[in-house]
Computed example of a mutant assay.
Amino acid sequence: MTKSADRASGGEEVGPQSGLLLRRALPGLDVAAAVMLSAFMVAVSAEARVVQPEARPMTALGAALLVLSGSALAARRVAPLLSFSLAVGAAAAFLGMRFAGWPVYLGAFAGLGVLVSQVSRARVWVPLAVVGGGAIAVATGPPEGWHLGRMLAVAGVWTVVTVVAARWAHTRRRLAEQEAEARVVRERLRIARELHDVLSHSLASISLQAGVGLHLVDRQPEQAREALRGIRQISTDGLAVPGVIGSAAYRVVQEGLTNVMRHAGNGVHARVRLRDVGDWLEIDVTDDGVAPSRSVGPPGHGLRGMAERVSAVGGEMRAGAETGAGFALHARLPLGGAA
């Protein structure tokens, strides 16, 4: 993924953040796991007919179904519903055609794990899990002589795995939400500390001027009015001291690029543009990635925390999917002349 930062007068390179290398490597790990699972199922199933002489001999079609069931794992992050459907559908077809081999169940249960762990809405994954489990159980018993005990055993194991996986996924999501909320709280505390450090002198001056104004408001109203003007000027200047604005701008760019690296995928170009427009510093972070999941649902904790930081210094921020492709983050921060 290539990243560039442009100012009105030129540009400079912005390097990737090493903390996200693992996230970028995860899709590759998914592909490797899918390949190994497919190879294992094909290799073991080819020998399984020795103990299942009544089963259908392994053919190219049977091997293709095993490969399809195992390779579906590679799409578990980008298309979990498709991954589940392919894994379970291919496994059910393999069993229904009476091919030999127990490893096919690994592909089916891997698809179930993808569904439960990657799809958070119960009204979506529960019906699919029930249908998938029913398909695998029915396919286990041959039409010419239903093995009711075997079918019930498969359905029971499927149910147990579903419940365990659902509880694990729920716990994982809850912990992730708690950690995200803790990050937002830490960000708020960091904002407060920065504002305190930078604005402490301004606040002291405001307090002094307010005391003068209160003392003179009745006897010398003109001087009290001057004190109020001074308070207004000090507070205005305080919202645009370089330390606060510089820190906010840095965080906006950091969060924008982090969002790109987490969600936009590989081979995507990102651009950071900073411009002085009147009394405002405008920041745009855009990319040309295609990530439909980024355009739906509420913004993440990172973007919410960044919006709070920008708002705390008197700025504005918006973020969302662009028309067609890509994602854009735009922020405006007040400079010295901001009112």
Rank of each mutant, 00 (worst) to 15 (best):
L148I: 03
G149D: 09
H170F: 12
H170K: 08
P143L: 11
V164E: 02
A137S: 07
P142L: 02
V163Q: 05
T171N: 11
V163L: 15
H170I: 12
T171A: 13
V160M: 03
V160W: 09
A165P: 03
V164Y: 02
T171W: 09
A169C: 11
A155L: 09
A166T: 05
V157T: 00
G156D: 08
A137C: 10
P143G: 09
H170T: 13
V154F: 00
A139L: 11
T171H: 02
G156L: 08
A166I: 09
G156S: 13
V138F: 06
H147M: 12
W158R: 01
A169E: 10
W146C: 05
R174L: 14
G149K: 15
G141N: 08
A137W: 06
V161I: 05
M151P: 12
A153R: 09
R174V: 07
A155T: 01
M151E: 13
V154L: 08
L175Y: 07
V161K: 00
G149N: 15
T162S: 14
M151L: 08
A169F: 13
R172W: 14
A155N: 00
R167T: 08
A139W: 06
T159W: 00
H170L: 08
V160S: 07
M151A: 13
V157Q: 00
M151W: 12
V154P: 01
E144L: 12
R150K: 15
G141R: 02
G145F: 06
V163P: 14
R167D: 06
G149T: 12
V160C: 01
G141K: 04
A165E: 11
I136F: 02
A155F: 02
T140H: 08
R150P: 05
L152N: 07
R172L: 14
V157N: 04
M151Y: 02
V163Y: 13
A153I: 08
V138E: 04
H147R: 13
R167S: 09
W168V: 15
E144K: 02
T162N: 00
P143Y: 15
P142C: 03
H147W: 07
V157F: 06
L175G: 15
W146V: 11
R173K: 09
V163R: 10
A166W: 12
A139F: 15
A137I: 04
W158G: 11
G149F: 08
P142H: 03
W146Q: 05
G145Y: 12
A169G: 05
T171G: 15
W168H: 13
I136W: 01
R174G: 06
A155D: 04
R172H: 14
A165V: 05
G149E: 11
A139N: 00
G145M: 06
I136P: 03
V163W: 12
L152G: 02
V138P: 00
A139R: 06
V163D: 15
W158A: 09
V157I: 12
L152M: 11
V138L: 13
H147L: 08
V164K: 08
H170Q: 13
R167V: 01
M151S: 12
G149Q: 13
R167H: 07
P143I: 15
V138A: 10
E144D: 12
P143S: 14
W146A: 10
A165D: 13
T140V: 06
P143D: 10
R173V: 12
R173S: 10
A165R: 07
A153F: 14
L175H: 05
T162A: 05
R150Q: 14
G145A: 07
A153K: 01
W146I: 11
E144Y: 05
L148T: 14
A165W: 03
L148H: 15
